[in-house]
Design a protein around this nucleic acid. Structure first.
Lengths: 337, 337
DNA sequence: ACTTGGCACTCGGGAACACAGAGTGCTAGA
DNA sequence: TCTAGCACTCTGTGTTCCCGAGTGCCAAGT
């Protein structure tokens, strides 16, 4: 039904349309890509492709444009991910290596990806759920207040000020800190609730109100940040692009954490590092845009996702290459720290 | 030269143009605002105002539009800041009160301001320079690594992982922490360098390499974060607005920390809580946009700035009211914590 | 059975044009 | 000093027209 030449024609249409942003006609196609057939033959193939729904024409008398289905076929079978140049790889490496803390890693990553792809980059902060507690710190601020600092093995730091129900002197704070650390050190964040469930009972009765207060804040911290933080960059790249959906909608989605989260999607559990590509209407939340995303994280643990959002008419091979490369490097950086 | 009626005409022009986004003609003006004079008289006044450069006409036969100079006069002499409604005030208060930490305060503030003004809101993180050290924490990660956590009195937390030049056991780390805190507690951040200058010399010689490493990272932290972090929200509100400058330029400026910082401007030292309004070409970095900004901070110490960026054609009284109110509330919240 | 050249057809988009309407400036009179 | 009237100048819109790119189909060629 779709012989090799028809596929080649589809590939050519996608490539030309992506680079020129204009409907591509049979004549130009036959010329530029040496298909060794006449425009008439190409027309026949195009008619077949249109029949199958891979391409469409904006007006009766214009060239053809790929449909979402056409891009899908292109991505799945007609293209291969384009690796970055050596210079680009080195640039990425040195740029990411300069990061001083987790915040910095994320910020640099998202900017890098935006610049590399000339589109909007989106990076999710490494999730807490798979992290483990590296250290819990209690810092006395004054006699009725302490600051709780939670440090995870991914370098993430959460802090919260706690109002205590009674005056607690510093030595007692130090003691509580030791107790907490003994209890939680190395513990997975998801296990924290069960770990601390019976902690108050194991302590002297006079410590219990204070400990209860601290633990409730600790739990709150874990729960609240469970819906993850997401950042984006490169919104300026939207200015040129034309979406079928309004620019306003895209910008709104970008500022809405929840929507953005859904757009990035879930990491497939089988192949966590695989590239996810959602094209146009395949995307339930923001039709008219495409998303290329993947999971990242140190080693086998996938911590979070990152990706790129752009118009359906995007250079998929290049974008996919960039996303994959950046995900690898940032995983590497995170594993090292 | 400019009698009261001419000023009234200018005010009416600004108000009408802001609300309709269309050049305003003499007839409509005389009707809507009960000026009690005929369109012909208004025309004469308009001619005078144009002569003086306060208004201009896009084409020979169109209505008048305020110039930057016209807006300036309007803001300085013809309008008064419009206070928020009681409902709005309460909404702000409860929304900001729910913040759990400094990050959260800033995030909530910027979103609030964007929503309130329907424009792009910009908030600078409270500066480190006027803060004081509340606590320095050294957390052993393994025998060659510690994490340095710096907590300021504004609730800001900076952390950095340090590679030590030698193996250091935990008790020694605890000792160093005590020394550092004794030296720095309550110390203004700008004074930190001099405070720690002679610290190595006062310690046993075997501690010096380790301490030197730690101190160099500490100094680095202070310096690096000296250029402040800035966040923005409400980019979606740009979609509708039309700037004389391209949308792309605005988005680029927003993502460029340095430019954004300059746009917000310096806090005037005399009257730190005064509203700064920069109109169109008065703004050197992004002509064609206007900025309403002010300092904020607990009590008399101005910590940073926040503001709103929008098209020159903006509702200044309302915007100024919102910026002022939000600045007050966020100052209040920061003072309380 | 597939490919090719030819040909009539369709439609979008740009150029040329006319025109209504809003708004102005000017002048003369109250 | 204000007002009324009037001629004038534009922009924006709607209409028409035409060019050209591109198509679909058919018949002939391999």
């Amino acid at each position: 039904m779709l012989d090799d030449r028809k596929l080649a024609v589809l590939r050519a249409i996608v490539e030309d349309y992506v680079s020129t942003n204009e409907p591509v006609g049979s004549k130009a196609l036959a010329e530029r890509h040496n298909l060794k057939v006449s425009p008439a033959t190409v027309r026949n193939d195009m008619a077949a492709l249109e029949e199958e729904g891979y391409i469409t024409q904006p007006h009766t008398s214009a060239g053809r444009v790929p449909t979402d289905k056409g891009y899908r076929l292109f991505v799945d079978r007609l293209s291969q991910v384009k690796p970055l140049s050596g210079a680009e790889r080195r640039a990425i490496e040195t740029f990411l290596a300069g990061a001083v803390d987790l915040d910095d890693v994320v910020t640099r990553t998202v900017r890098l990806l935006a610049q590399l792809t000339r589109q909007v980059a989106v990076v999710q902060y490494p999730t807490l759920t798979r992290s483990t507690v590296r250290h819990v710190e209690l810092v006395p601020l004054n006699e009725r207040r302490v600051m709780l600092v939670l440090i995870t093995n991914t370098g993430r730091v959460e802090q919260r000020v706690i109002e205590l129900p009674e005056v607690v002197e510093d030595t007692r704070v130090a003691h509580l800190r030791a107790v907490l650390n003994a209890c939680l050190d190395g513990c997975g964040l998801t296990n924290v609730p069960e770990q601390i469930a019976d902690l108050p009972e194991r302590l002297p009765v006079e410590d219990r109100p204070v400990v209860a207060t601290i633990l409730s804040v600790l739990l709150e911290t874990l729960v609240e940040r469970h819906d993850e933080k997401i950042v984006f960059a490169g919104a300026a790249n939207l200015a040129g692009a034309d979406f079928t959906v309004g620019l306003r909608d895209v910008l709104e989605a970008l500022e809405e954490q929840v929507v953005l989260m859904r757009l990035l999607g879930e990491t497939s559990t089988d192949t966590p590092s695989a590239l996810t590509v959602r094209i146009g209407s395949e995307n339930p939340y923001l039709r008219g845009t495409s998303i290329v995303a993947t999971g990242y994280g140190s080693g086998d643990r996938q911590l979070a996702r990152l990706g790129v959002l752009g118009p359906t008419r995007m250079d998929y091979p290049v974008t996919m290459g960039a996303v994959r490369a950046v995900a690898r490097y940032v995983s590497q950086i995170l594993a090292a720290s």
